[in-house]
Write a protein that binds this DNA or RNA. Sequence first.
DNA 1: GACGATATTAACTGTCACGAACATTCTTGA
DNA 2: TCAAGAATGTTCGTGACAGTTAATATCGTC
Lengths: 231, 231
Amino acid sequence: MTMTIQASADTVDHPRRSWKQDPDGVRANILQVAREAFANKGLTGAKIEEIAARTATSKRMIYYYFGDKEGLYREVLADAYRRMRVAEDTLDLEDMPPVDALRKLAEFTFDHHRTSRDFIRLVMIENVHNGQHMPDAAEISGQNSSAIRLLEDIYDRGREAGLFRPGLSAVELHWHISALCYFNVSNRATFSQIFGDELFKPEGQTNLRRHVGDMVLRFVLMPDKIAEMRG
Amino acid sequence: MTMTIQASADTVDHPRRSWKQDPDGVRANILQVAREAFANKGLTGAKIEEIAARTATSKRMIYYYFGDKEGLYREVLADAYRRMRVAEDTLDLEDMPPVDALRKLAEFTFDHHRTSRDFIRLVMIENVHNGQHMPDAAEISGQNSSAIRLLEDIYDRGREAGLFRPGLSAVELHWHISALCYFNVSNRATFSQIFGDELFKPEGQTNLRRHVGDMVLRFVLMPDKIAEMRG
DNA sequence: GACGATATTAACTGTCACGAACATTCTTGA
DNA sequence: TCAAGAATGTTCGTGACAGTTAATATCGTC
């Protein structure tokens, strides 16, 4: 009954150190199950026993590898940020003209957030907890994340080309883009119950995505360049 | 009618309708304590016992008036939305020219959200719970909230004056404004830990507020009108 | 001035998540 | 072949907490 753990869905391709016993696999498996649990039910809402049950291993292992519930949650969170980071790295817009690059970045973020429900929910939950469990700055250091560096690059190029207006910062642009893309996922439940779900239907979302792109561009472009937008 | 209990922090000041027995007061008192508790700790995180302890009354009363924990939470949420609604109603921009009105609405929302931490947190929490406890549409019906009606009015006037571009809707504009203003409060914890808290310092916030106004305006204005913005 | 409805209190109960302690098996390297 | 330590299983105490029971106090009202 060895059958090392196959943490489905997510890669985890065990470099099985030997035969039985696959610590990394077990860890990864726990982490994945825990991620879903915490994303769905929150820190207090998720139950260790239930997580353990969904796992290919036992409750004891969770405590063995992660110490306690909070330790597990912390690792889930850190791991989630790491994954998000990886996704951001795939973006390669350095060669694209600044206007297109910015639009693409914004709309990519929109789509990406939309499909990263678990991550968004973890961030929501962590914010409910006032960010008490965030991995330390060193581990994420957003200041030199590729997202920020990319934005910096795009903005600088736009400035040099006389297309973008001065006085803005990469972090602030990131804030704006994040706000628009995050809210779309985080507040879907309440917003759609109050204002209807038109905006969240396929057409509504395509529309919103474009508008988010528009919004960011119109925000940074020099006034006289806006008329020329989108051919 | 009974002048409900005015409990700020701990200074409970009961203008009792008679000697003892002040149902409305008790209810209001419970509601207020519960609001803070739920806003701070979430639905599962908040403990009835603790809420009861902070109350001027007992645990049994909570069950007496609200049935169970979820019932209490539901009422807290409904009440929070009601309060928010009232605040929105105070806004009176019908006589202001559309451009100014729109900016003012956006920047007012920014400030208002900023100072409604409990409300925002309740909404965050409710979204974590997928909006399962929202008061029924009839009670909030956002479609005819003053926020939407106001936006509709402003937008229409802007259109008529040839200032705003066509194809946008009040609900969508509300979505954009909400996104920017909400995120600023909801994600402060994680965002500032990753990217630093410059944006959340006083100067950062003044800046952001203006930029949110800019962003919304630039989004709706006809391209040729943007240059004239802000004198 | 008594009666039924409403409001309030304090003590109790059953459940269950969490974590600790202890026991056991497997792996590795000497 | 054995020792040391890593990994895994099992069991149980405990404390926290949602929800209840039963008894009491106060009110409006006839």
